[in-house]
C-alpha cells in the first residue's frame, strides 16, 4: 500500500506572501485595461458626433411624449443631445476575436486537463490507500 502524501507546513511569512500575491494580481488585472483605453472609444465617438449636430427636439428625432419626459427629467435639447447621439461601436476586430476565443478555450482546456490529473491523485489516495 502506498503512503499518503504529507504536505509541508507553511509558515506565517509564506501565508502572508501568498495572500498579498493574489491581491497584487487582482489589482493589476483591474488596472491593465486602462492602458488600452479601449472603452474610451465609444465616448469619444459620441462626443464628436454631438459636437456637429444642430440641436432641437425635432433634429434629435424626439416625438412629443419623449420631449415631455426629457423635460420632466430636467433635460433641454442641448443637454439631451449628448445622450441621444451617444453610440456604441460594435465593430468586430477578427484578430482580437480569435485571440479571445483561444484564450478562453485554452484556459478551460488547461484547467480541465490539470484538474483531471490532480483528481486522479485524490481518488487514488482516498480509495486505494485506506
Amino acid at each position: 500500500m502506498n503512503k499518503n502524501y504529507t504536505p509541508p507546513k507553511q509558515g506565517m511569512f509564506g501565508q502572508i506572501f501568498d495572500t498579498i500575491l493574489v491581491l497584487v494580481l487582482v489589482y493589476a488585472s483591474l488596472m491593465v485595461p486602462l492602458l488600452f483605453k479601449a472603452e474610451a472609444k465609444a465616448e469619444a465617438a459620441a462626443a464628436s458626433a454631438s459636437a456637429h449636430v444642430q440641436v432641437s427636439w425635432q433634429s434629435l428625432g424626439q416625438n412629443e411624449i419623449q420631449q415631455q419626459q426629457w423635460v420632466k427629467l430636467g433635460y433641454d435639447p442641448e443637454k439631451a443631445a449628448t445622450l441621444i447621439n451617444s453610440r456604441f461601436d460594435y465593430t468586430i476586430d477578427p484578430l482580437m476575436l480569435i485571440i479571445t476565443i483561444l484564450v478562453v478555450a485554452g484556459y478551460f482546456i488547461f484547467m480541465l486537463k490539470v484538474s483531471d490529473k490532480q483528481y486522479r491523485e485524490v481518488i487514488k489516495e482516498k480509495f486505494d490507500n485506506k
Binding site: 499518503n4 502524501y5 504529507t6 504536505p7 509541508p8 507553511q10 501568498d18 500575491l21 493574489v22 494580481l25 487582482v26 493589476a28 488585472s29 483591474l30 491593465v32 485595461p33 488600452f36 479601449a38 472603452e39 476586430d93 482580437m96 485571440i99 479571445t100 484564450v103 478562453v104 484556459y107 488547461f110 484547467m111 490539470v114 490532480q118 491523485e121 485524490v122 487514488k124 489516495e125 482516498k126 490507500n129
Partner: peptide, 30 residues
C-alpha cells in the same frame, strides 16, 4: 469590454499557474 475580458482571463491564468507550481504542494490529496 474586450480588453477587460482578456485582462481578467490573464489574472485567472496566472493564478492557475501559481496554484499548480506553488500552492498545490500544501494540499492534502485525500
Amino acid at each position: 469590454y474586450g480588453a477587460s475580458l482578456l485582462s481578467i482571463m490573464a489574472f485567472y491564468i496566472l493564478a492557475s499557474i501559481w496554484f499548480v507550481l506553488r500552492r498545490y504542494k500544501f494540499v492534502k490529496r485525500a
